[in-house]
Design a protein around this nucleic acid. Structure first.
Lengths: 142, 142
DNA sequence: AAGTTACTTTATAATGATTCTAAACTATAA
DNA sequence: TTATAGTTTAGAATCATTATAAAGTAACTT
């Protein structure tokens, strides 16, 4: 396993011991080229298939939240009951298909805002999040 | 009551009978100049104070969802467990202070996107939602 | 104005996501 | 090894939301 050391370091840097469960989670999240968008239950299914054992929901929540706090994951603002996370923690935006719950990244450079309105008094900008909702071209708009 | 007829019409147009509870909700939502951003429990508190009686949660959810379906209310995409609704159903965007959960509208005209990226194959744009997260100017960023 | 009907409200149960808990387990350092 | 502190886990608790079904009410009929 080429990435093992990398994942162990990632965990240690997050103040977490490298356990079997956490290493499985890290492998899914961080050993890939593309951005990964996921919900907890999607991550659970993949991780359990990989290690061929059940992983407790609590473990998944704990680990994901620890990574989020460390800045290795970002929560995405979307409607709906389930929380989506993103392994891309850079400033960026999303295409979102509500019908399929599919997300796709838009690089920060690939979109720009002009004519920004004035910020409310005493406030400063922390982050700008753009979501472009898309639907299949052949379907009627809802 | 000047707006009574207006609210009764709004309800009828939504296929809802004008009941005491629904009229109280309408008054809060639609008889105001400014956009109103709210969660169900905020609406519940205000409505119960107005009519000095309890209103069942189910009634609030039913009524709000009926208005949403009719296009009189919009759900806002945000992180977190609670669903926010908006009486402004025009295309527009938001300032959002996560610390206080305060929302403020940004008119569509007051912001513009340039350099839009290419839409994924077979998809078309349904809506663009921009959220500008703000924080108090004097506090450190998180 | 009373009766009938269909729609409403309501309290409460059910559901689903997330968080909490405390007991059994394990990585790690001594 | 052993001790310790951190982990995993199942299941309970919580919170928002939705479903249910019984009691209440608007509105139509007469």
């Amino acid at each position: 396993m080429e990435h093992l050391k990398f994942n162990i370091e990632k965990l240690r840097a997050s103040g977490l011991r490298p356990t079997r469960q956490r290493l499985a989670i890290c492998k899914i999240l961080f050993n890939r080229k593309e951005t990964f968008h996921f919900t907890i239950d999607q991550l659970k299914k993949i991780a359990e298939k990989n290690i061929k054992k059940k992983i407790s929901l609590a473990t998944l929540y704990n680990t994901v939240h620890a990574f989020e706090k460390k800045g290795y994951l970002k929560e995405i603002s979307l409607k709906g009951n389930k929380t989506f996370f993103d392994t891309n923690t850079k400033n960026h935006h999303h295409f979102y298909d509500e019908e399929t719950s599919q997300l796709a990244d838009i690089k920060n450079e690939n979109i720009s805002i002009s004519n920004l309105p004035k910020i409310p008094n005493g406030k400063k900008i922390k982050e700008i999040e753009i979501t472009i909702k898309v639907a299949n071209n052949n379907q009627k708009q809802n």
